[in-house]
Write a protein that binds this DNA or RNA. Structure first.
Length: 197
DNA sequence: CCCTGATTCGC
DNA sequence: GCGAATCAGG
């Protein structure tokens, strides 16, 4: 089915690979039942290897060219093949490819003490969701707002009254008891909650 | 468990 | 030369 690596396909492969597509993506794009292993194999055979970092930083640490598994099995036999496992890891090529490392978060060197003292920096906002982990004071509501994995993540930040939460969120956090009108109560609770999430 | 690339080796 | 199997890691 797969007419081998025609120039067409090799060209596409090169293009996509240099474009930063992952091997599996390229394999899917090329179709013809080619697998990502085939793609990777071809890529290596073609000599192109390092490029931008699609997902992983490639080889973080210099991995000892896997002497295990099959190598061990082969090694069990008399090593007629005098191929030395891996004398030199060989630093691939020049690190000319500038890896785009994005600064994750503006992380201060150390501010644990300040966090314990809301004295100055935290004005206790009226609007929930404006406090960040850096501005969240000791007596501010620690109700999480939004997706913790998002950069937009924040905390409620209003004055904490019950425990670590503000009055409203404390009601939610420490649900005392489902009121009689359980259905209505829950509905209303969920409703009032929505605008904080 | 998903994904990534890297490597080995039988074909 | 090819690519499945396997490995190492995020």
């Amino acid at each position: 089915m797969n007419a081998g690596w025609t120039e067409d396909r090799v060209g596409a492969l090169k293009k996509l690979w240099l474009e930063g597509q992952s091997a599996s993506q390229i394999a899917k794009a090329l179709g013809g039942g080619v697998t990502r292993n085939a793609v990777i194999g071809k890529v290596h055979r073609l000599g192109l290897s390092g490029r931008a970092a699609p997902s992983q930083p490639a080889r973080t640490t210099f991995r000892t060219a896997r002497p295990s598994a099959k190598a061990a099995a082969t090694a069990a036999a008399p090593a007629t093949n005098a191929a030395p496992a891996a004398p030199a890891p060989q630093p691939t090529q020049a690190p000319s490819a500038p890896r785009r490392i994005e600064a994750v978060a503006p992380r201060p060197a150390a501010v644990p003490t300040q966090l314990a003292q809301p004295s100055a920096p935290a004005p206790m906002p009226e609007l929930p969701g404006t406090a960040t982990v850096l501005t969240l004071g000791a007596h501010m509501c620690k109700w999480p707002i939004g997706d913790p994995s998002s950069r937009e993540f924040s905390f409620c930040g209003r004055r904490a009254s019950e425990g670590v939460y503000c009055i409203e969120h404390a009601r939610v956090a420490y649900q005392p008891q489902v009121r009689k009108g359980a259905k209505d109560g829950a509905t209303e609770l969920a409703r009032s909650l929505r605008r904080y999430m």
